[in-house]
Simulated assay, not measured.
Amino acid sequence: MIIFYDGYCPLCKAEMRHLQKRDKHNALTLVDIQSTAFASNYPQLDFHALNARIHGMLDDGRMITGLDVTYQAWKVVGMGWVYAPLRWPVIRVFADWGYVKFAKHRYTISYLLTGKKRSCARCVPGVSNE
């Protein structure tokens, strides 16, 4: 599974580090969409869509987004049970709504929770500097 994440987001980077530590079989490929190599390595993907929320590509080529990515990633490393309730039918609706709000304000939320600001060596035009 490939995970496309925002390397400028402190919380996103922290989650990727935690996933990487648990990925004993190297089943995940973590791709920072903010890296200079992203556009040349994945020209077919829409940066702005990927920057709006986390995306993942399953082994069969299907793209998934949001909490489906989170659940699948943690499932791959043997911890899917932690996130499984977020995919249950009734909870899913509210969890997905909350995730969309989180993704939109992730820099502010990251700062409030970690004290770390958005880390960007180069700021992308048109992307909020919350």
Rank of each mutant, 00 (worst) to 15 (best):
V76Q: 12
G56N: 03
R17K: 09
K104A: 14
R87I: 01
K116C: 10
L113R: 02
L28W: 03
A73G: 05
P43V: 12
G56I: 01
Y107W: 01
D68I: 02
P43N: 07
P85L: 01
F38Q: 00
L50W: 05
R17C: 08
I2N: 10
L113W: 02
W81M: 09
A84W: 05
N26H: 09
H25V: 09
Y71F: 04
F47Q: 01
A52C: 06
K104E: 13
T29P: 09
T70E: 11
Q34D: 12
C123A: 10
G126Y: 03
A95F: 00
L67S: 09
G56Q: 07
L58R: 15
N129D: 13
K21F: 08
T65C: 08
S119T: 08
R122K: 14
F4Y: 13
H55I: 12
Y8S: 11
I2L: 14
V93T: 13
V69Y: 08
E15M: 12
S119H: 14
S35M: 04
I64K: 02
Y111W: 00
K104Y: 14
K21N: 11
A52V: 06
M63I: 04
H48T: 07
H18V: 14
D32W: 14
D59Q: 01
D68N: 14
N26C: 06
K24D: 03
S35R: 02
L112W: 12
P89M: 10
S110Y: 03
A37K: 15
A52S: 09
R122E: 12
I109M: 06
T36A: 09
F102T: 04
K75H: 11
G78V: 01
D60Q: 11
